[in-house]
Amino acid sequence: MSALAFTLRRLGAMVLLLLVLSFLCFALLGLSPGSPEQLLLGTRPATPELLATLRAENHLDEPFLMRYWYWIEGVLHLDLGKSVQTQQNVLDMIVERLPITATLALYSTLIALVVAIPAGLISGSRRSGGTDRAVTFAALVSISAPPFALGLLLLYGFAVLLGWFPVYGAGETFIEMVYHLTLPSLTLAAGSAAVIVRQLRATVIDVIGKDFMTFARARGLSPIRIQVVYLLRNSSLPMLTMSGLLLSGSLAGAVVVEQAFGLAGVGNLLVKAVGQLDIPVVQALALLTGAAVILINLLVDLAYLAIDPRLRHPRSAT
């Protein structure tokens, strides 16, 4: 199977998954307690005219599958409906908030990788040494620290006491945003970094004992080359999977951090929408998060192909 066929197959699978996901999201409306009309009414008074309009707008008299068809048609035309609470266009609401959450997720994953890769490599190569113990301990602490507590601690230390970073808000320009999002990203990165370090350390311990590592040293290759091309590249696949999972997780998991740092992100929106039973918003966000997870997985799979030639060139039959 060539790389192209692999990509096409994954894309096909992705479309199929998205369809299933969209169906489940749509079914949310039917599964929620209360009648659809009540949910769609929101805070508005239930006049017969409004009820009739809602029934017509949402095709509530049609069978379930037809309603799904109308909905998915709308979604494909970027029409995600209106918030029942604010009557705002759902797409606009999300587009407004997405940059913060996306930046937060990417930024924190980047920080996690920058910290975790060297730490994992060193920790795994000098097993049971002083550095390894320190790294393992730090990882344990980061994994155990609850994000809200860590967030508050960082806020107090770096924003209040030292005054290096802002306490509140997300900033306007990109530079400002990076500056504002540093502390929240650090908070989010701590747990991810710890997971990646532990994963990488375990793989490195395995890879470092392989014959090709000895053979590389025996040929006098430079330490940098051995670390990167031999050790890191051969240890990177499990780490990559983990990073993909963490990145998709941080999209949804930004909720707590956004709350702690007062950021108006997607997580924040989700919490509000669930609390107010704002079904169209919840549907859209569930679809968005699911699509992001599927897309990230696809990217991880493609990265696999780029890194490991064994996947590009399956062993020939003879």
Binding site: F212, F215, A218, R219, G220, L221, P309, R310
Partner: peptide
């Protein structure tokens, strides 16, 4: 010294080379 003065060849041809 390694590689240029003293070379080392190992037993298992499949594990001695970097699969990547």
């Amino acid at each position: 010294l390694r590689g240029r003065r003293i070379g080392l060849l190992l037993q298992d041809p499949f594990t001695m080379l970097n699969p990547m």
